[in-house]
């Protein structure tokens, strides 16, 4: 059954963390658009995601994909209250940096830069890693996201306290947890179903 696995030949495969717009290519065959049923479209949530090989691969299990995508949107895009968008993206970037997902980190570091306008600080997180000094509040968010990313988890009351000392309220703390936790899922999907390709 090895023929179902795609072995892409990639020149200059990305091997460092970057904010550049790198790509991603799957190791298993995504669905073709012509194959999609109503249930698949529901799983994709946004029709535009049918253009993404990643989502078209996940669409093989449309129920999980739909739950995944709706969770993703609520965690990152529901900004009616809670943590600023930039810091949700920072938590996602920190988890991706810790797990080593070069592709995920590229996407969400760009979002963190865009929403915070702190492109250089974000770049230092990518270059120097989780120890980079990004100022007290960002350091706390990065450290807490990394503690949650460790297995077994190193997250506990101390981490809650750390965020509270930085002035985060309950919902903002929950948003940090959600952002990092979601990317512990997403990193594993992206790392194990395909690999990054160079920026065009």
């Amino acid at each position: 059954m090895t023929e179902i696995v795609i072995h892409p030949a990639i020149e200059n495969r990305p091997n460092a963390f970057t904010q550049a717009e790198i790509g991603w290519t799957p190791w298993l065959q995504p669905l073709d658009e012509a194959e999609l049923t109503e249930r698949h479209w529901a799983g994709l949530v946004d029709a535009s995601r049918a253009k993404s090989p990643y989502f078209m691969l996940l669409a093989r299990d449309p129920d999980i994909l739909q739950a995944r995508t709706k969770t993703d949107k609520d965690i990152f895009y529901n900004v009616s209250a809670g943590l600023p968008r930039a810091e949700r993206e920072l938590a996602a970037t920190a988890a991706s940096r810790a797990n080593g997902c070069i592709f995920c980190a590229s996407v969400h570091s760009r979002f963190a830069s865009h929403h915070s306008k702190r492109t250089e600080d974000v770049q230092r997180l990518l270059d120097e890693g989780l120890q980079a000094d990004l100022g007290s509040r960002w350091n706390a968010i990065v450290e807490v996201s990394a503690a949650l990313t460790a297995t077994p988890s190193q997250f506990g009351a101390d981490e809650i306290r750390r965020l509270r000392e930085e002035g985060l309220d309950d919902l903002e703390i929950a948003d940090v947890i959600h952002g990092a936790a979601f990317f512990n899922w997403a990193n594993r999907l992206m790392l194990s179903l395909g690999e990054p390709t160079p920026a065009a």
Binding site: K70, T71, G82, D170
Partner: peptide, 26 residues
């Protein structure tokens, strides 16, 4: 209090449960 906190991210809450059901009660 935690119930109230989760209530503020209703889609997250609902779809975490749906993920569970898709995997363990499909």
């Amino acid at each position: 209090r935690l119930d109230g906190l989760r209530e503020q991210r209703p889609e997250t809450r609902l779809n975490a449960q749906k993920s569970y059901e898709a995997l363990f009660e499909p």
